[in-house]
Deep mutational scan, measured.
Amino acid sequence: MDPFVVLVLCLSCLLLLSIWRQSSGRGKLPPGPTPLPVIGNILQIDIKDVSKSLTNLSKIYGPVFTLYFGLERMVVLHGYEVVKEALIDLGEEFSGRGHFPLAERANRGFGIVFSNGKRWKEIRRFSLMTLRNFGMGKRSIEDRVQEEARCLVEELRKTKASPCDPTFILGCAPCNVICSIIFQKRFDYKDQQFLNLMEKLNENIRIVSTPWIQICNNFPTIIDYFPGTHNKLLKNLAFMESDILEKVKEHQESMDINNPRDFIDCFLIKMEKEKQNQQSEFTIENLVITAADLLGAGTETTSTTLRYALLLLLKHPEVTAKVQEEIERVIGRNRSPCMQDRGHMPYTDAVVHEVQRYIDLIPTSLPHAVTCDVKFRNYLIPKGTTILTSLTSVLHDNKEFPNPEMFDPRHFLDEGGNFKKSNYFMPFSAGKRICVGEGLARMELFLFLTFILQNFNLKSLIDPKDLDTTPVVNGFASVPPFYQLCFIPV
Rank of each mutant, 00 (worst) to 15 (best):
F419H: 05
T167C: 11
G117L: 03
E104R: 13
K465G: 12
G40M: 00
Y358G: 00
V153I: 09
N116Y: 05
L445S: 05
V153W: 01
E444N: 07
Q146G: 10
N133Y: 09
G298V: 03
S390Y: 03
C372H: 10
Q356C: 09
R377K: 13
I19M: 15
G384S: 06
K52S: 08
R139C: 13
I269R: 11
E274C: 10
E155C: 09
E142W: 03
I264D: 01
E104P: 08
F69T: 07
R108Q: 09
K232L: 09
G332L: 03
V177E: 01
L380R: 13
H251D: 00
K247N: 09
V82M: 07
P33L: 00
S280Y: 05
S140K: 08
N259M: 08
T159W: 12
N56R: 15
W20L: 13
L29W: 12
S429C: 06
E92Q: 07
T304C: 14
H396R: 12
T210P: 04
D46C: 07
A86F: 07
L458Y: 02
R26E: 14
R26Q: 12
P480I: 05
D89H: 07
Y424V: 02
G384V: 00
K249C: 08
P37E: 01
N116P: 02
H368N: 02
K232V: 13
I178F: 04
K52M: 08
T364L: 14
L313Q: 03
S18L: 13
I452A: 03
S140F: 07
S254M: 07
V370I: 07
C175N: 04
D463M: 13
T34D: 08
P101V: 09
F187G: 05
T302A: 09
K138N: 08
K420A: 08
N116I: 04
R442G: 13
G91M: 06
V208N: 11
S336A: 15
F446G: 03
G40F: 00
M406C: 13
R119S: 09
G431F: 03
N217R: 11
R124L: 00
V394D: 03
L170E: 01
Q192Y: 09
Y61F: 07
I362R: 15
W212N: 05
A292F: 08
S140H: 08
D408N: 11
E81H: 08
P30H: 04
C435Q: 01
V472Y: 15
T210V: 06
G439H: 15
L395F: 02
N231D: 09
W212R: 06
F4G: 10
T302H: 03
I284T: 10
I462Q: 14
L152S: 01
F482S: 14
T386W: 07
L314I: 14
D262A: 02
V394K: 01
F376I: 13
I269A: 13
T302W: 01
L311W: 06
I112H: 07
L90G: 09
Q278H: 13
R342A: 13
G296N: 15
G343W: 13
W20G: 08
K160H: 11
G298E: 02
P101S: 11
V248T: 06
H344P: 06
C172N: 08
L156G: 00
I141R: 04
D408Y: 05
F134H: 15
I257Q: 10
N418C: 12
T469S: 13
F401T: 01
F168L: 13
S12V: 14
H353G: 02
I178H: 07
D414H: 07
V177L: 09
V394E: 02
G475P: 09
C172E: 08
E328D: 15
H230R: 07
A369K: 14
E354C: 01
N423A: 15
C164R: 06
K399Y: 11
F482I: 14
S95F: 02
G298I: 03
F267H: 02
K270R: 13
K52G: 13
S140M: 07
R329P: 01
M255A: 06
L388Q: 02
E281R: 06
D397L: 01
F446M: 03
I42Q: 07
G25R: 13
E241I: 08
I215W: 12
E241A: 08
V394S: 04
F487T: 03
L201H: 08
F428V: 02
F187L: 07
A309R: 00
F187D: 03
I222N: 03
K59E: 11
N418I: 08
P363M: 02
I141Q: 07
H251T: 01
K232N: 07
N378H: 12
N176Y: 00
N474A: 11
T469R: 04
S422A: 02
T305L: 04
F187W: 09
S180E: 11
F69N: 12
P30V: 01
K420E: 05
V374R: 02
R21Q: 11
Y379R: 02
T66F: 03
C151W: 12
V330S: 07
I205G: 12
C486V: 11
F376K: 00
E328L: 13
S51C: 07
D265F: 01
L311F: 09
R105K: 12
E155T: 09
K185G: 11
P409R: 00
L458E: 01
I222T: 08
K421H: 15
E405H: 15
D262Y: 00
F69L: 13
L413N: 02
F126C: 03
D165N: 08
N231L: 11
M136E: 12
S390T: 05
R261D: 03
N378I: 02
L458M: 09
R261N: 05
L314C: 15
G32S: 02
G343K: 09
N202M: 14
F482G: 13
L233E: 02
I215K: 05
R329Q: 12
L156S: 01
F282C: 03
F110A: 10
I327A: 03
D414N: 09
N218V: 15
D468S: 15
R333F: 12
T302K: 00
L467C: 07
P33G: 00
W120K: 03
F168H: 15
E300C: 12
S365G: 08
L453R: 04
E405F: 15
N116W: 04
I452S: 03
N259Y: 06
A149M: 08
I88C: 14
F446I: 01
S162L: 13
D243S: 15
Q44H: 14
R108I: 04
V145Y: 00
N107K: 14
E328F: 14
Q146L: 13
E326L: 02
V64A: 06
F4N: 02
N259D: 12
N418K: 14
F476K: 07
L237I: 12
R342I: 14
P464R: 13
F94K: 02
I289G: 11
A321S: 13
D360K: 05
F487P: 01
H316Q: 08
T304D: 10
N176P: 01
L391C: 03
D262G: 08
K84D: 04
Q252D: 05
L71N: 07
H411C: 00
P402G: 12
